[in-house]
Computed example of a mutant assay.
Amino acid sequence: MTSFAFIAGLIPLAVATGAGAVGNRTIGTSSLGGMIFGTVFGVILIPGLYYIFAKMIEGKSLIRNEDLDPLTETYHYGSGDEKDYD
């Protein structure tokens, strides 16, 4: 909602007339375009990509047969014959 309010607040700056209008329009249109692009990217594209990638990975595991033989259960932290250098 904040980005939409900021975009609405930039519209008068983008359509400015009178003294200094060229600078105001330049700042207003570039800020307006950037905010619109960023808002569309953040609101539509990022969640859409998340959904697509989640559907692609659904049902797959990162480690083969991890559910039968969990990696954390099979890894041992040394055999006990190492020297302690503390």
Rank of each mutant, 00 (worst) to 15 (best):
L68W: 08
G38R: 03
Y51G: 01
T74Y: 12
D81I: 11
L45F: 03
L45R: 01
G42T: 09
G80N: 09
S79I: 05
S61W: 08
F41V: 04
R64A: 10
D84E: 14
S61E: 14
I52R: 06
L62P: 00
G80A: 03
D67Q: 09
I44V: 13
F53Y: 13
G38Q: 04
L62K: 06
L68P: 01
M35D: 13
L68Y: 10
G42I: 03
D67P: 00
S79P: 03
L71A: 09
A54F: 01
F53P: 00
E82H: 12
I57Y: 02
G42K: 06
L45M: 06
I63A: 06
Y50W: 08
P47C: 05
R64Q: 15
H76Q: 11
I52D: 04
K55Y: 01
M35P: 02
L68V: 11
F41S: 06
L32Q: 02
Y75F: 15
G33D: 13
G78C: 06
L68M: 12
I44P: 07
S61K: 14
Y50N: 03
I36E: 10
Y75H: 05
L49N: 04
S30G: 00
I57V: 11
K55M: 02
G38K: 02
F41Y: 10
I44Q: 05
S61A: 09
V40E: 03
T72K: 09
K83F: 10
Y75K: 12
G78L: 11
E58L: 01
T74Q: 12
Y51M: 07
D84H: 14
E73Q: 10
E73A: 12
G48S: 10
D67L: 08
V43T: 14
D69F: 08
G48P: 02
G38M: 09
G48V: 02
K55H: 03
L71H: 05
E82R: 15
F53M: 11
V40H: 04
V43L: 14
S31Y: 13
E66I: 03
T39V: 01
M56Y: 06
V40A: 15
G34A: 12
H76L: 09
L68H: 10
Y51E: 06
R64E: 15
L68K: 12
A54P: 00
D69A: 04
L71M: 11
T72H: 08
T72W: 03
D69H: 03
G38I: 04
